[in-house]
């Protein structure tokens, strides 16, 4: 029995292990998608709440890490929708108030400065990417998922994910 299944049976020790292993990675994924540290903390905590709630329904079609990342990703997308920001995957943007995520990241970069040693330099780098490229880059770089797993999470073929990723890297190549 793997740890997620153990969590589904009420094993707190397994939950603690999973939490300790993934908390930083999930937080950084949420931060990369939301550009906001407070929202990222909320999403991270909510993610592990959902892990516990849904552990019993976990099927081993993807790895434990990918499953948790998928929860965090979906929560981040929900958060973006609620905030009226552009959404990866749906490529829609609500007409009401709220800057796009790109604008939010650019604003942050302008505030914090574009110091490559800054802890938020990564956010500055990805700000220039299209939402569909940024999402794949985040899943690959921040959470280290395989192409197959990224494909399962996003619903896009692994090959297409890789191509978007390379496109994103090429854009960053000019920036760097």
């Amino acid at each position: 029995m793997n740890r997620i299944q153990q969590i589904g049976r009420g094993d707190m020790e397994a939950l603690i292990q999973v939490y300790e292993k993934y908390k930083v990675r999930i937080y950084r994924l949420a931060l990369s998608m939301l550009g906001d540290t407070y929202l990222a903390e909320d999403v991270t905590q909510e993610t592990f709440l959902r892990v516990q709630e849904r552990a019993a329904s976990y099927r081993r079609e993807i790895s434990e890490g990918a499953w948790i990342a998928a929860i965090a990703r979906n929560l981040s997308l929900d958060c973006l929708r609620r905030k009226g920001r552009e959404v990866t995957g749906d490529w829609e943007r609500r007409e009401d108030e709220g800057p796009s995520l790109s604008e939010a990241l650019e604003a942050r970069a302008a505030e914090e400065g574009k110091d490559e040693h800054s802890s938020l330099y990564y956010l500055d780098l990805i700000a220039c990417l299209a939402p569909e490229e940024r999402e794949i880059v985040n899943l690959r770089i921040v959470t280290g998922l395989s192409w197959k797993e990224i494909g399962k999470i996003t619903g896009i073929k692994a090959e297409a994910c890789r191509k978007r990723y390379v496109r994103g890297l090429k854009k960053l190549q000019d920036k760097l």
Partner: peptide, 26 residues
């Protein structure tokens, strides 16, 4: 040089902050 781009991205991602509660254990 995409490999070096990827390397710089990974290095930058590794410098992303940790959550406030990173040092806390529940």
């Amino acid at each position: 040089s995409l490999g070096s781009v990827e390397r710089k991205l990974r290095e930058a991602a590794a410098r992303l902050p940790e959550p406030e509660f990173a040092n806390q254990k529940f």
